[in-house]
Design a binder for these strands. Structure first.
Ligand code: SF4
Ligand code: SF4
Lengths: 141, 141
DNA sequence: TTTATTTAAGACAAATGAGTCTTTTAATAT
DNA sequence: ATATTAAAAGACTCATTTGTCTTAAATAAA
C-alpha cells in the first residue's frame, strides 16, 4: 500500500505528536531507536516532513523535532500525499492507465469502496485526533 | 497495493477467462498486445500461473494459454497469493512487525476494514464470476 | 567567541522490482 | 520423421526504492 518512507513518516509524526512539544523536542536518534527504524533513513524523512511544514525542528543543542500546535491540526492525509502522492488513492489498483467510473477496471466494485473509505478517514482525521487515540488506547507505534 | 506482476496476472487471467477456451487457445503475443503489457514480462507471469495451475497451456502449433473449467472455479484470491503472497492481506499497513488485534497499529480502524473487506471479496469471488461480470458490464481489462 | 550539539543536504551503495533477451523443451501438423 | 510453432526456463539489464555515510549549516551553552 504505502512506501516504507511513508510508513515511517506516519509513525514518526504520531510519535512526535505523542512524545514531543515545543518545550520538549526529540532527536532523530531517540525516535529511530524507539520506532526501530534505520536512523539515517529516518533523518531524511524527518527533513522532508520539516520542509513540508508537517513537523517543526530547531538545530543545535537541545534542538530536535517537535509538533507545533498548527502541525497537529493537519489531516493525516497530508503525510501520505507528501511521500507517496495522491496516486495511492487515485491510481487504479490494477495499474490501468486511468481510473474512472465510465471505464472501470474489473476490481472496481471490490476495491473502490474500500479505498475511498480509507481516504475519507485519512482526510477527516487530524494528526491530533489520531494521536489522542494512540494515547487513549495505548496503541503501539 | 499489488505488485505489477500481480496486476498483470489478474488482468491476464480475466482476459483468458473471457477470450479463451480449451478449443480456443491464446498466445502470449496476442494477450500482451491486447492488454498493452510488456510481452516477455507477461510470458514469465503466464508461466508462473501455469506452474501454479491457475491457467492451462499447451506448447507447439495451435498451442497457447487457456482456461480449463477447473481453472475458472478458483477464487480470485489465489492469483494474488501466488504473486504477492498472503502478506498483502496480513502484514501491517504501517510495516509493523506484527499485526494483531491486541497490538494494533494506529491506522487499525481506518485500514483494517478496507483490507479485510477487499480480502473477503477476493476470497469469495471465483474467476468465473468475475469474468462474467467483465463480460456483462463490458468492463475494460 | 569558541565549542558542542543537532538538523540539513546530498552523494553514494545495496537491495529489490520490473523488464528484456536468448536458449531449450515440448507438441503438432505435414 | 521432420519442420514448425509456441511455451518454459533462466540469464541478464535497467529502474526505483531503501538505506548509509560524509560534510555543511545553524543554534545555544560555556
Ligand atoms: S478497480 Fe475500478 S475504481 Fe478501482 S482503481 Fe481500478 S478502475 Fe479504478
Ligand atoms: S492498521 Fe492495525 S490492523 Fe491494519 S495492519 Fe496495522 S496493526 Fe494490523
Amino acid at each position: 500500500m504505502f512506501s516504507k518512507a511513508c510508513k515511517y513518516a506516519i509513525r514518526a509524526v504520531l510519535y512526535l505528536a505523542v512524545h514531543s512539544s515545543p518545550e520538549n523536542k526529540v532527536g532523530v536518534k531517540a525516535i529511530a531507536e524507539d520506532l526501530q527504524v534505520p536512523k539515517h533513513f529516518l533523518a531524511k524523512i524527518l527533513q522532508q516532513l520539516s520542509r513540508d511544514q508537517l513537523i517543526s525542528s530547531v538545530k543545535g543543542p537541545n534542538g530536535g523535532f517537535y509538533m507545533a500546535d498548527e502541525n497537529l491540526n493537519v489531516p493525516m492525509e497530508k503525510i501520505i500525499k507528501s511521500f507517496d502522492g495522491m496516486e495511492v488513492f487515485t491510481s487504479c489498483i490494477l495499474g490501468l492507465p486511468v481510473c474512472s467510473a465510465e471505464n472501470p477496471c474489473p476490481l472496481h466494485v471490490q476495491a473502490f469502496a474500500y479505498r475511498e473509505g480509507l481516504y475519507y478517514q485519512l482526510q477527516h482525521q487530524s494528526i491530533r485526533e489520531m494521536a489522542d487515540r494512540v494515547k487513549l488506547q495505548e496503541l503501539k507505534l
